[in-house]
Design a protein around this nucleic acid. Structure first.
Length: 583
RNA sequence: GCGUCCGUAGCUCAGUUGGAUAGAGCGCCGGACUUCGAAUCCGUAGGUCGCAGGUUCGAAUCCUGCCGGGCGUACCA
């Protein structure tokens, strides 16, 4: 399809050049205006559209007239060329390019749509980054979805990708759940209470908050515990290890559920001292300075920012210090060409500072770091607030989505046809969740409505999965009844509008993958897939495939369906949506 | 206050390298299953693209100002 576009661009440019010559117009003027080929707003108008408005000035006549003359001069180039308004609209013969396109789809299969835009690029993607004092919530799920999907999309564009997690396992907030457990835990364990281990720890974090309301010394005691921890006090460290293990194990269970994984996991407790070393080096090179109290600062006023503390006067590290160390460590271990931090937009300032500080330390790769910032997830009832206990727990939410999916399967009486009911419900829930979280542009705050997400109508994950299932089922029936298609298929038989639309849209998939990669934006893929699936639904509803008028037409249509299925599978894969043959 | 992001139909969202009467879904109302899975499909109604200027043949899209909202502006993360 790209070839046709290039071809027609050239035709039009040369026709315009001829026209200019006839009228004695300076060709140099013409060359300054590019010929733009775009998609007409409605399929009836054609396959390609070229606006001629910009040429009106050069030709000193109305764009409509230029369009008419251009269309007339292109009449012998094949296809159907019409002028409408100031546009030249072209309907092309799709047969040949469709044959090539589908040949390529079946040849490349799960690699169809992949590009080499980022070939040779090493990209590290950091996402998730939980604290070890509580389980994951809905906000983490958006983060995980985004991180996973962006990583897949970068891979699909040819990059070598390394997924990394950074676990925030130190600091005062960790000590709070530890202190509450030490005070109220009485040797209880997740096993003894029958509670998932990260929730078990999280409950003590909540307990601390309640306790601190009536016990003024609670905060002070937590501070003391942090000092004990930093000193390496044996029993404190032992408790810390035990409780961190509980949380991390619980969170890992959630990761298994949502099917995300990392190539490397960093722990803040292991990287923060490296940050301190790097800051001290920067002090030597005068990138930073120390005040009379001994606090180390960076002055960013020359770029319109504030002064920031990098090391406290007692020598302890801050979040920023730690991130400096982690970045340098990572680049040493795996020299990346691109670093993507998937972190909420409340930390925009932090990353602006981090990148500048790294650059002040002389790391040239600092300008290849990117903060993929995303907005908050709200509920239909309003904002999630931890103080008011309206935070949606990740495990609870997933369980609820699974329950709704399972109920729907039972209501439709499809228990016997789906194979494993639990697995199917789980995969529908995951498809619903990831699609819903990824269809909205990352930068925007969004409203997550669990009920809407799991609906099988409309712009949802289950809708896409359902179309995949029907498509699979039809293709299976086809091969059972007619065997595998072999020999040449005449794609030029596909002349219905829906068929032509499907051909063009499958051809657009690599472009969508490329754009999603450039923008680091999975919603490009979500929007694309929904448009394709909707077009397919209409086709499927209106057009018989297995009962087509002729064997040749059936072969062409089933080929079309197989191509659409492949694109749907590949697209779902980029969004972390399980593909289902039956549901 | 300053910084930053956002503001498109009743609701949830696309569309922003400027291009044709601004698109979907949900919801409302009305249709379509003797046929490949109706968990589907089709149709009707619904919009001063926050407001005001500017640039342009042409602006939801670019520029300026204003209004409204989120987030930040910690020796928290």
């Amino acid at each position: 399809m790209e070839q046709e576009k290039a071809q027609w661009t050239q035709y039009i440019a040369s026709v315009l050049a001829d026209l200019a010559q006839q009228r004695g117009i300076d060709p140099a003027l013409l060359e300054q205006i590019p010929v733009v080929v775009q998609k007409p707003p409605k399929p009836e108008l054609g396959d390609l559209a070229v606006p001629l408005f910009p040429f009106a000035r050069v030709f000193r006549c109305p764009p409509q007239q230029i369009a008419e003359e251009t269309a007339r001069l292109l009449a012998d180039k094949g296809g159907s060329v019409r002028s409408e308004g100031g546009y030249v609209n072209i309907t092309i013969e799709l047969g040949d390019s469709a044959s090539k396109l589908f040949e390529q789809i079946f040849d490349r299969q799960e690699r169809y749509g992949h590009t080499d835009a980022l070939k040779g690029v090493r990209a590290m993607v950091e996402f998730s980054c939980p604290n070890t004092n509580k389980p994951l919530h809905l906000g983490h799920l958006r983060n995980d979805s985004l991180g996973f999907s962006v990583a897949r999309i970068l891979e699909a564009n040819g990059a070598e990708v390394r997924r990394v997690n950074l676990i925030n396992d130190r600091g005062i907030h960790i000590c709070k759940s530890m202190l509450a457990y030490k005070t109220f835990g009485k040797g209880k364990t997740p096993e003894s209470e029958g509670v998932k281990s990260d929730h078990f720890v999280g409950n003590y974090y909540v307990k601390f908050a309640q306790w601190a309301k009536t016990e003024p010394d609670a905060e002070k005691e937590a501070q003391r515990m942090l000092q004990d921890w930093e000193r390496g006090d044996e029993s404190t460290v032992a408790l810390w290890k035990l409780m961190n293990r509980w949380t991390v194990e619980g969170i890992e269970e959630t990761y298994r559920k949502t099917r995300i994984a990392f190539d490397d996991v960093y722990y803040e407790s292991q990287t923060y001292s490296r940050g301190r070393d790097e800051v001290l080096k920067g002090l030597e090179s005068n990138a930073f300075y120390r005040d009379e109290e001994g606090t180390v600062w960076v002055d960013l006023e020359h770029i319109g920012l504030d002064k920031k503390v990098l090391l406290r006067k007692d020598g302890t590290s801050l979040y920023l210090t730690q991130d400096i160390g982690t970045a340098i460590l990572r680049h040493e271990q795996w020299p990346f060409d691109m670093m993507v931090y998937v972190v909420g937009n409340e930390q925009q300032y932090h990353f602006t500072v981090l990148f500048h500080v790294l650059s002040m330390l002389g790391y040239s790769w600092a300008d290849r770091m990117y903060h993929l910032s995303y907005g908050m997830v709200n509920l239909p009832e309003g904002k999630m607030k931890s103080r008011e206990g309206t935070v949606v727990d990740a495990d609870d939410l997933i369980a609820e989505l699974e329950r709704m999916a399972r109920q729907e399967i039972i209501d439709k009486g499809r228990e016997d046809q789906v194979g494993n009911l639990d697995t199917t419900a789980e995969e529908i829930a995951l498809g619903a969740l990831n699609y819903y979280l990824l269809q909205t542009t990352a930068a925007k705050d969004m409203v997550f409505d669990p009920k809407k997400s799991i609906e099988f109508n409309g712009n949802t994950g289950p809708y896409l999965q359902y179309m995949g299932a029907r498509l699979s089922s039809m293709i299976k029936k086809h091969s059972e009844r007619f065997g595998e298609t072999s020999g040449p298929v005449d794609m030029s038989l596909l002349t219905l509008q829906d068929e032509r639309e499907l051909i063009k849209i499958t051809a657009r998939f690599p472009g969508a993958v490329r754009q999603a990669g450039e923008d680091k934006n999975p919603s490009v893929i979500a929007t694309y897939l929904y448009e394709m699936t909707r077009t397919f639904s209409r086709f499927y509803h209106d057009t018989p495939v297995l009962r087509a008028e002729s064997p040749e037409l059936m072969a062409a249509r089933i080929t079309l369906c197989k191509g659409v299925l492949q694109v749907l599978k590949n697209g779902c894969d980029l969004l972390g949506m399980p593909f289902l043959k039956s549901m």
